[in-house]
Amino acid sequence: MLPLQADEVVDALDPGAVVVSAAAFLLGFVVVLLLGKTLFVPAVRRVLGSRGFDEVVRSLGTSVANAIVWVAAIAIAFTVAGYGAFLSAFAVFGGALALAVGFAAQDLLGNFVAGIFILKDKPFEVGDWIQWEGNAGRVEDIDLRVSRVRTFDNELVTVPNGDLANNAVTNPVAYDTLRQKFVFGIGYDDDIDEATDIIVGEAEKHEDILDDPAPSVRLVDLGDSDVGLQSRWWIEDPDRGDFVKIRSEYVQSVKEAFDDAGIDIPYVHRELTGSIETIEAIAADE
């Protein structure tokens, strides 16, 4: 059976009916569009702003709200004009198409959603130094799909936001101070208390190492050839460059102080014993 009977086709082609339908379509479209633009879109932007979302998310929300208003205006206009059956068929087709696209682009959509959460929760920001899954670098850009990180070897790494949102990310510069650690190995015959005093003293001399919290030392390891003393100290306004610089200067000063005090920093000695047997095979002349 055809969707439209002959008399329905004739009615639809009647000039008067066409004018009325067109007027109804235009009126419904304009009314819904104006209400959406003046009420719905600004309300969405205000709600996103009140919840602390980033400007990128607010802009995205505004774009989505505008798209919703246009779709709603067209849908309501078709309904008011008397073309609800056409609209229903189009909606079914559009839903099937959206489902197919969703399955095909699920990773892309996942990264997109992850980008929104990163911009909202702010586990890190542009300029922060982060570490994730064995990688490290400074964040240069946070997009809705990917984040761009410049490594300390000056390489640009483009990371899908899903990887950063679904895995542990360390942000060493999230707070005003950062604790650093280093294990100094001394010989078993060396004085632990003397070595501890030197380690703490060199930390207290360094102008970039904080006095509060104070530097401290813990015995953490009895190795095959050394005693491990772990030094812990704090720095202010942590930055990758400062982190490396302060650590290098401090470790060097402790090493030089150990040398002056006659404290040995041993290294592993290995002795290989055994014998090598050689067998010579002499082929007989035939």
Rank of each mutant, 00 (worst) to 15 (best):
F103V: 14
N166E: 13
D221S: 15
D259N: 13
S50W: 14
D193Q: 15
N66S: 14
I276M: 06
V80D: 00
V56S: 11
I263A: 06
A257S: 13
W233R: 11
S147Q: 06
P266I: 05
E280C: 01
W70Y: 10
T151V: 12
P3Y: 08
L35D: 05
S231K: 01
L48T: 06
L99Y: 12
D259M: 11
F90W: 10
K255A: 13
D239A: 12
D128S: 11
V56M: 08
D264N: 14
S88N: 05
V69H: 02
S248T: 14
G134W: 09
V220P: 04
K181P: 00
R45P: 00
D163C: 03
A195P: 07
A100H: 03
I282V: 15
D264A: 15
T151L: 08
D153K: 13
D260I: 06
A203Y: 01
G201C: 07
G115V: 01
T79G: 04
V80N: 00
I186P: 07
D128V: 02
A91P: 01
A65G: 04
L97G: 12
G162A: 12
V69N: 05
F117L: 11
A261Y: 03
L33K: 08
P123Y: 03
D191G: 05
D143W: 04
F258Q: 03
I246G: 02
L39G: 09
L178H: 10
A77P: 00
D259G: 13
I235F: 08
E55G: 02
A43G: 02
L178T: 04
D141M: 09
P172K: 12
A67D: 11
N161V: 05
E277I: 15
V254L: 07
F53T: 02
D141S: 13
A96S: 13
L219H: 11
G185V: 01
G84T: 10
S63F: 03
V69E: 03
A89H: 08
I142N: 03
A261M: 04
T196Q: 13
V92L: 11
D153T: 14
I263G: 05
G49L: 06
V251I: 15
A100E: 03
A105Y: 12
F25D: 00
S275T: 13
S225I: 10
D260T: 12
V101Y: 15
A284H: 10
A165H: 11
I118E: 04
G28C: 04
I74E: 00
I282Q: 12
L13H: 09
D153P: 01
L34P: 00
L119I: 06
S253E: 10
V113E: 03
A136L: 07
F103P: 01
N135V: 07
M1D: 07
K205I: 02
I279P: 00
E140W: 05
A43C: 04
P42Q: 06
I209R: 09
D11L: 13
